[in-house]
Design a protein around this nucleic acid. Structure first.
Lengths: 367, 367
DNA sequence: TCTCGATACTAATACGCATTAGTGGTGCGC
DNA sequence: GCGCACCACTAATGCGTATTAGTATCGAGA
């Protein structure tokens, strides 16, 4: 018998059956819906509400167990305290090896403390049925949106930004457009690692990158060169070894070649898969080289979780802090403000894979 | 100069500035908003639309880059393809050790493949500012909601369910109410482990539980007893050791006591923290016991990721599959259907921590 | 007494989309 | 040649909340 309620015409039955609206509260309290909205909205500005009325409304709302409909609020007020998260890598990859999970730790905490909930837009990576041209537009459900992943579709992003929709990209961007981003300071971090190597006496240092010239990679390269230049060591593109397929490329033979030509340290970029780092370690082992003693290795990032070798010298990417910073930036945009400093520092990680070069300090240093 | 548009009165500026509405599309296509809705909604039922009109609308929508406002859709149609996820453990615990992460892997994949996005309601656990009496009500933004965590607030859940809001709890529930759930079949899994022990010749077996009588725990206990009963081994509550503080409780002394009384195998429940399993292993090591040979250990669940001992005999909880199953159940509810089988099988995991009891097969077996 | 200014509310409306009840027009059968 | 079904589409309205303009009441000052 209580099924009939709130069916206007033949309208499809709504699932939100018995939930009270502001109108019901208003009726019970003997006031208007406006008043209910005013009282429950907690707006002190403009209109005045007497204490008794306020009590009546609150009492009625309590008795009916009123809760606001977020969709309606959003529609009316253009705010719903939701932040979208779009990841162009599976958000929860089955291969947990190297996922965006650590970012999300920070994202969730910061979002919670700022009073936002998160909308995880699924299927952004899987390229499934939803990956249409307007996949990103789902973001508009939220008040703003976080984008992670190296290969976010630039066009669509620009569209959002142009429409004034708050977007923050997690990871530095080069685009000229005004897309806000938050990223790790790879330049300084890489420089610090190189400076460290030089201080130990290394002069012939090689940088290995995977072949994907995104900012995360080029920044490291820049820091690498800067570190050498600052130390007065000549450098140039010939020091950088960019390889598309580390497995195939980083062979024991190549290592010996480098050693023969005087190389004493190798610096490796960290990537999603840690492909280069793995391959390099395998090659070192296969070549029977003693890592810290005969050859120093540094990793510009974190080792993969299944790495069971000694702690690699390098730096740690503060992923949780990056996530939090991104949320702060986004919250600022949503609130109509300007985000502040987009770069987050990486902490240098002393490790056991770097030592003074074999044969002591080279002559060059002593001159 | 294009700032002025769509400001009705002094209304607060909406952030969704230049985004076109169906009305704009309609104007460009020379049709009514209704037609646009009909065409873009892809509804084939009832009204018919000519091919040309359809093309005009689609063309206009394309040119303007129209995308629907999810909030408005939701308000009008009571659907938005959003599933809420409420976790009463931190959704992204900083301590990745033993989190809900594996569930989310399955949840995300299944949600994506069913065309749902996810709303992660934050702060459900942290007890922060949002943890008010109506925290769960935020869920109503979505079409339905997944709840994980042992200690979800029953009252609020019931309220949601009573209102006809689709809710699925991840983990078995005992409540008499109609709350839907999806859970692992711990009873059968535990029974299988025990059966295995008995088959090897064990008769005196102890079960260790942490002190939290939730279904996940009591089901394992039931399976434990059932396994013994099925094998004709007498059992009873005295076989179960429930301890609130495993660290303090599971001492080498206690182990020796058990051994002295004839115990040859210990079965341990897995919990969030793996506290009992860790404590037990520590005690075994401290007591200088040889694990498979002098004492068999079985773990009813997965070992913590940092466990570096031998693979414990026991069973694996198919967390990803559970997550997926939960989403399927929720999708069914949202679609107005009935969820199917709520129990998901656990796979027996042969390990290296169980062997035949010392001293060979006891006399009792040979009689 | 009449105005002025608070005070305490309410009426009306917008938000963007989905839905249903029409509304003309055309073709067909009898 | 009249009714009737059918087609292609539109007008009107609702979803639940927020906002703004406006109304009624009352006390104080002129």
């Amino acid at each position: 018998m209580n099924e009939v309620r709130r069916q206007t015409r033949g309208r499809a039955a709504t699932p939100r059956a018995g939930r009270p609206r502001q109108a019901e509260v208003a009726r019970l309290a003997g006031v208007s819906q406006t008043t209910v909205s005013l009282v429950l909205g907690g707006k002190a500005d403009g209109v005045a509400i007497s204490v008794e009325t306020r009590q009546k409304v609150l009492g009625a709302a309590e008795r009916l167990g009123y809760v606001p409909d977020p969709a309606a609020s959003r529609l009316a007020a253009a705010r719903n305290n939701l932040l979208g998260v779009f990841s162009f890598t599976s958000t929860f990859p089955t291969d947990v090896q190297h996922s965006y999970y650590p970012f999300l730790v920070g994202v969730e905490q910061e979002a919670a403390s700022q009073g936002f909930d998160l909308v995880l837009f699924t299927g952004s990576s899987t390229g499934g049925a939803r990956a249409g041209a307007h996949a990103l537009n789902r973001a508009r459900l939220a008040d703003g949106c976080l984008v992670l992943g190296r290969h976010a579709p630039t066009e669509e992003l620009r569209r959002l930004v142009d429409d004034g929709f708050p977007v923050v990209h997690l990871g530095r961007r080069d685009d000229p457009d005004g897309l806000a981003w938050v990223g790790a300071d790879y330049v300084n971090a890489a420089r610090e690692v190189v400076t460290n190597l030089v201080a130990l006496g290394h002069r012939e240092i090689v940088l290995i990158c995977e072949d994907d010239p995104v900012p995360a990679s080029t920044d490291r390269e820049r820091g690498f060169h800067e570190g050498l230049v600052a130390a007065g060591v000549p450098t140039g593109p010939e020091r950088v070894h960019r390889c598309a397929d580390p497995e195939r490329d980083l062979t024991p033979a190549r290592l010996r070649e480098w050693l023969a030509s005087g190389v004493t340290a190798i610096v490796v970029e960290e990537t999603d898969t840690s492909g280069a780092w793995r391959a390099l370690n395998a090659a070192v082992a296969e070549a029977g080289l003693d890592c810290p003693r005969e050859l120093s290795l540094a990793l510009l990032g974190s080792p993969p979780p299944d790495d069971d070798g000694p702690v690699p010298t390098g730096f740690d990417i503060p992923r949780a802090r990056l996530g939090a910073a991104a949320v702060r930036a986004l919250a600022a945009l949503v609130g109509g403000g300007r985000p502040d400093e987009p770069l987050v520092e990486c902490a240098f990680r002393p490790g056991a894979t770097v030592a003074a070069p074999p044969g002591g300090i080279p002559a060059a240093v002593l001159r």
